[in-house]
C-alpha cells in the first residue's frame, strides 16, 4: 500500500501565445518510509511533479492519492491543512524567516501544524531535532549569521520538527558543496530511517543517488525506466 500514488498526472502551462505540456501522464507510487529520488535532465518536469504531488500547485489532469484521500479533489484550505500537518518541505534555498531565531523557526512550524504538545514536549522535540542536524548550539542565532550549509540544516529541521508523514525536497543539496551535500543526504536518510518519514526528493547529482531507495528517471514529462 503506497503512501502516495500519482495516477495519469498531466500538467500544461499555458500563456497567451503558447502551451507547454510539461507532464504527460505520470504514474508513480511512493512506498512508505522510503527515499524516492526523481532525477533527469533539467526541464524534464521534476520540480513540477514534486510540487503538484505536494499540493503546491494544481494539475491539469490526473489524481494524487495521499493516505487514501484524493489531494486533487480537495479545496485550497484542506490542502493547506495537509501541508501544515502531514508534509514537510525543503527547497533549494533554505527560505528561513529572517527575524526568527533557529529555535523560533521550529516553534512557528509546530504552531502551524497546530500540535497540541506540552511545553516540555515542544522543548524536547526541538532539542532532539537540532541535535540531529547538529545545530543545537545555534538555537538562538538568526539566519543572517549562519552559513549556507547551516541554514539548509535548519531548513531540514524545520521541515520535520512537526513529525510529518512525508518530506518533499527539491534539490536540497544544489546550493551546497559536495562534502556538505553528502552530510545533508546522510541526514535525510537518518530521518527516513529513525523517524519513518517518507521522502520524495529531486536531485540531478549522481553522487546523491546512492542514498535513495528508489530512483525515478524523468525525461520530457514522462517517467523512464526505473532503476533500483
Amino acid at each position: 500500500m503506497p503512501i502516495l500514488s500519482v495516477d495519469g498526472l498531466e500538467k500544461t502551462f499555458s500563456s497567451a501565445n503558447r502551451e507547454e505540456k510539461v507532464l504527460k501522464g505520470i504514474n508513480l507510487e511512493i512506498t512508505k518510509g522510503e527515499i524516492t529520488a526523481l532525477t533527469g535532465a533539467s526541464g524534464s518536469g521534476k520540480s513540477t511533479l514534486l510540487t503538484i504531488a505536494a499540493g503546491l500547485q494544481k494539475s491539469t489532469a490526473g489524481t494524487i492519492i495521499f493516505q487514501n484521500e484524493a489531494l486533487t479533489d480537495m479545496n485550497t484550505r484542506q490542502v493547506q491543512a495537509i501541508r501544515a500537518k502531514k508534509f514537510g518541505f525543503v527547497f533549494q534555498h533554505a527560505h528561513l524567516v529572517p527575524f526568527l531565531t533557529v529555535q523560533e523557526q521550529l516553534e512557528l512550524m509546530m504552531d502551524t501544524a497546530e500540535l497540541k504538545w506540552s511545553k516540555d514536549r515542544r522543548k524536547e522535540e526541538i532539542r532532539s531535532i537540532l541535535d540531529l542536524v547538529d545545530m543545537w548550539g545555534h538555537r538562538d542565532s538568526y539566519p543572517g549569521t549562519l552559513s549556507g550549509g547551516e541554514k539548509q540544516r535548519v531548513a531540514i529541521a524545520r521541515a520535520v520538527v512537526h513529525k510529518p508523514e512525508m518530506l518533499f525536497a527539491d534539490e536540497p543539496t544544489a546550493s551546497l558543496d559536495s562534502k556538505r551535500s553528502m552530510e545533508v543526504m546522510k541526514l535525510l536518510r537518518t530521518l527516513s530511517r529513525e523517524r519513518n518519514i517518507t521522502v520524495l526528493m529531486v536531485t540531478h547529482e549522481e553522487e546523491t543517488l546512492e542514498y535513495a531507495d528508489t530512483i525515478v528517471q524523468m525525461k520530457d514529462g514522462v517517467i523512464g525506466k526505473g532503476l533500483v
Binding site: 503546491l56 493547506q80 491543512a81 495537509i82 501541508r83 501544515a84 500537518k85 508534509f87 514537510g88 518541505f89 527547497f91 527560505h95 524567516v97 529572517p98 512557528l108 512550524m109 502551524t112 501544524a113 524545520r158 521541515a159
Partner: peptide
Amino acid sequence: IAMYGILKAVGVK
C-alpha cells in the same frame, strides 16, 4: 512577498 509565499507553502494560513 517571497517570505509570505514560503510560509504559505509550509501551511501557514
